[in-house]
Design a protein around this nucleic acid. Structure first.
Lengths: 214, 214
DNA sequence: GGGCCGAGCGGACTACAGTCCGTCTTATGA
DNA sequence: TCATAAGACGGACTGTAGTCCGCTCGGCCC
């Protein structure tokens, strides 16, 4: 959903109709799939950071320009590859069972989200790094970040209405940056430690006055 | 402080003596100053992100290789330029008056640090972005980050010994990432809002059970 | 089926970070 | 003062991200 969708369709009068993207042309679709498949394979074989976009274009049998037109930049390609996994999590949050989905108290929903996100992040750090760092501020412009942010902000508002929910949500998401996660793994922190650390922080920020055990 | 200092000096027996860096050679010093001065000027004139290292080398009248040998990479140059400002803050923390310096309760010291750091960050966002993002994980390897981290970790340990101080310190520093700060400014958040938001979070994480006002 | 036109294609091109290595400068000590 | 070698110099070179634009092909309408 972050690949660039086609241009708007055009009404019979020749006016552009917003919200009705013209369907993807057959050659475009073919190439999109070839690129994604080649990227997936090369990333797995050689490691994300050892694969250039030229190499992907070559392996996919398309021109470099094609890759860029479709995905915008390196981050866009990474986002497209992560998209499926992230959508699973998004679905669970929006319509799944509690505590990830609606129904549980705010602290528990935030905690469940942090656990699940860190898990996802841990399994795809390299791809996340690409998607977040390829260009300045990329992380905060991606659709999925905006969704996570909105989700957390609503829960902050619910649990602690006296806080600045919008900003606090950014604060809670900040430690989930791929770059930090990667650096900490390198220093020997493991996933479980980070999960329990984040749980403790979330409990302190959103929980009732008496703090939970770390 | 983060420019590469010279090689170790050599004892009379020809053995390298650790911890006694041979003094900087005169030509090296000359060039270092020329580069820093040129960088400072060009950054101010054109904006950090519009200046290439080639341009700096040219303006300084030195070869490109010289810039890289001395500063390592783009991040290293940014760090060198920030160094003086950061050292001021470091000094205030280590030996200045409370609440920034020793003597005040942990929450207050953390709060004072966050205020001061955000202030510094706000005044030099572009340079900070360069120093943190030029290479993967650069932020976490810089000496000053390690110092901030140690400082916060000690205070966390003091205020809330049941928390994982080491990890929690990283969590507290994460929202100070230059990239995020920049993105939020773009979205209209101002410095005061971020400062008060961080104060509230710090109070919640480190403070006594009853929360302070946001 | 044929023709039109605009989306899609691809690879040459630019700009920049970072490396390499033959040459030159400086500090030293005799 | 001069010989020497450690180390600094600088610019040509490499590899990659991202742009551009003339050409091609697919969808649509007749």
């Amino acid at each position: 959903m972050n690949d660039r969708t086609g241009p708007q369709s055009v009404s019979q009068q020749g006016l552009p109709v917003l919200g009705e993207p013209r369907p993807e042309r057959a050659d475009a679709r073919r190439n999109r799939l070839k690129v994604l498949e080649a990227a997936d394979r090369l990333f797995a074989e050689l490691g994300v950071k050892n694969v250039s976009l030229d190499a992907i274009a070559a392996a996919a049998g398309v021109g470099k320009g094609t890759v860029f037109r479709r995905f915008g930049d390196r981050a866009g390609l990474a986002v497209a590859l992560l998209d499926e996994r992230e959508q699973e999590l998004q679905a669970k949050i929006l319509t799944g069972p509690p505590p990830l989905g609606p129904g549980a108290p705010a602290v528990e929903r935030v905690t469940a989200f942090l656990d699940a996100y860190l898990d996802l992040l841990d399994r795809h750090v390299e791809l996340f790094m690409d998607s977040e760092n390829a260009s300045d501020g990329a992380r905060y412009r991606i659709g999925s970040y905006r969704l996570w942010h909105r989700h957390i902000a609503i829960l902050v508002e619910e649990a602690r209405p006296e806080l600045d929910a919008d900003y606090t949500a950014h604060v809670i998401l900040a430690p989930l940056a791929a770059d930090l996660h990667n650096a900490l793994r390198t220093e020997g922190f493991d996933l479980a430690r980070m999960q329990s650390g984040m749980r403790a922080v979330a409990a302190a920020v959103l929980g009732p006055q008496l703090q939970a055990e770390a």
